[in-house]
Simulated scan of single mutants.
Amino acid sequence: MGSPWDRGPRPPRKGPPRDRGASGPGERVPSERAPAGERPRRPSAEAPASPGAPPRPARREEVRLYGLNAVQAVFERRPQAIRKLYLLQARVHALRPLLAWCVQNRVGYRVVENEDLDRLAASSHHEGVVADVLRSDPLPLEDWLASLAPGAPALALWLDGVGNPHNFGAILRSAAHFGAAVLLPERSTLALSGAAARVAEGGAEGVALVRLPGNDAALARLHAAGFASAATVVRDGEDLFAMQPQPRLVYVMGAEGEGMDAGLAGACQHRVSIAGTGAVESLNVAAATAVFLAHWAAARR
């Protein structure tokens, strides 16, 4: 079973809530998380506007992505987000349409050596290309719900505490494959990074990221829109393979080790488990997510 559920719901914590999305026990960020490459660069300071001048529009943050499919997906879906490109000479032919677009739109690119890309990405898994792109902000929940066709089936993943960028990237890849949205809690710091985008293999650009309000308000709005809610737990839940999933469904996935917030799990309409042999305690959260999504997709066929 998936790991959010690895330990089942967490007991309510005392004291002020902590931000979610940071790696919890059992979900450690690998050492190649690329602090320099993954962090959005802040724009340089600007002089204040003169009195009476209209306010300047907010400048969007950039994120450094790497990996051939990740960069190609940005070019195919939102080329205007690309701000700078670095590549190996060996990638020039494969990226010729992107380079031509950069020339036409005066976007800088540079052919560099492999060690330069290692440094820029803070990873050796860049596959010969690194790009600085504008970060795409998550949609508000109301905007995402409004974009759905009335009564149409829809699937979403609520990530309650998932923080490992490799797990996040694998979840995005599965979500893109099965057409699911990804819902991020109000306090979650989880965001697309270079590592997540590379693991997603282009899937990050094909998934709707949605920012939720507080748990109670988000669940109420989803239920009102016809979504059933299912907390995924490692044991003592309904057998996933014995149930018929509703056409509109949101699976709540918790972090490995910690599980999900006990209050959130208790507020869901269902608790669902993946039956297995018992040879291992549970599935990794990304692997479990793929199982849940595939089961819903099979029922729609």
Rank of each mutant, 00 (worst) to 15 (best):
A217W: 04
E115N: 12
R106N: 14
P25A: 14
A152G: 00
W296M: 02
R135A: 15
A191V: 00
W158R: 11
T232S: 02
A265I: 11
P9H: 00
R41T: 07
P57A: 08
S188I: 01
F227C: 13
A204P: 07
P153I: 10
H223K: 12
D19R: 12
H223F: 02
L120P: 01
A180F: 05
W158L: 10
N215M: 13
Y86E: 07
S123C: 04
W101C: 06
P48D: 09
D118N: 15
L283Y: 01
G24P: 09
L145F: 07
S3Q: 14
A220H: 06
P79D: 12
P213E: 06
P4A: 11
G21S: 05
V103A: 14
G37T: 03
A58Y: 01
F178A: 02
L95Q: 04
F75K: 02
A36D: 03
Y86S: 11
E32S: 12
R119H: 08
N215A: 15
V207K: 09
G259Y: 08
P97D: 01
P54Y: 05
L99A: 02
D116A: 13
A297P: 03
A176G: 07
M243E: 14
S123H: 00
R221W: 00
S50Y: 10
L264T: 08
V199N: 09
D143I: 07
L264I: 08
F178Q: 08
G179V: 03
V92T: 10
V74K: 12
E32C: 13
L88R: 10
T277V: 05
